[in-house]
Design a protein around this nucleic acid. Structure first.
Lengths: 122, 122
DNA sequence: GCAAACCTTGCCATTAATGTGAGGGTTAAG
DNA sequence: CTTAACCCTCACATTAATGGCAAGGTTTGC
């Protein structure tokens, strides 16, 4: 499909789809006329990218973890072992993020409960 | 303490401490000479800010949640009820982030395990 | 075959977080 | 007192992610 179609199906502007290609996290092929051609899996891939970006990952991190997330790409390919280490790094990075978020989520919740369980009558 | 001291104790550049003040998440008082004066609690507060920024929160979000995180500020103050709603919003926002991260963490781990449990002899 | 709609590649703008330097006071050490 | 080290404000630069526009080729519908 062409870039406009993918944009329509993902809600992501063509401008960004081109950007994602530029930073190496999306790899459309080119038709004879130079148009980018995306396969069906691109839809899921783009949504995956958005999700990770929205959650605060950078395109650099996404480039590392994406190859092992979609069912589409090459889950059985051979990353030259260096990527395996990068991947492990991302894993602990993500663990740290989860930890921080959980800790703060906890604190906010506690604060909020103390409020609601105390006095709302003003 | 002065900005340089706080910078030294937190590892955060003075430039950024000024920036955090500018965006309203850090509130030093001013000495008679115009110098920013930070209290002891500022240290923890700055570290808290860094943690949240590193995890992908924006200063806008931090401004909302910070008042109920530190032990120092005003955990018993009265947010005009509008902030309470904002806080609840941030709470679900954080929950969503945690969810996405956990889901992807899971996937990466699975991928990594399939690798290690399969073949490392190449 | 023409016009509208879509594609391409630049390039310039913006926002958030951050870096950096200039120009000018202040403080602290000798 | 002088000088180095700090502080102030202002302003411009940078990086990442994003938005927008322009000039030009392509496709599609009529």
């Amino acid at each position: 499909m062409k870039i406009g179609d993918l944009a329509a199906r993902t809600g992501v502007a063509p401008r960004l789809l081109r950007y994602y290609e530029q930073v190496g996290i999306l790899h459309p092929v080119r038709s004879s006329n130079g148009y980018r051609a995306y396969g069906e899996p691109a839809v899921e891939r783009v949504l995956q990218i958005r999700e990770l970006l929205d959650v605060g990952l950078t395109t650099d991190m996404i480039r590392e973890v994406l190859p092992c997330l979609g069912v589409e790409p090459q889950p059985r390919e051979c990353p030259p072992a260096k990527d395996l280490d990068g991947l492990r790094g991302q894993l602990v990075n993500i663990e740290k993020r989860i930890d921080v978020l959980q800790r703060n989520h906890q604190a906010i919740k506690k604060f909020l409960n103390a409020w609601e369980g105390a006095d709302t009558t003003a």
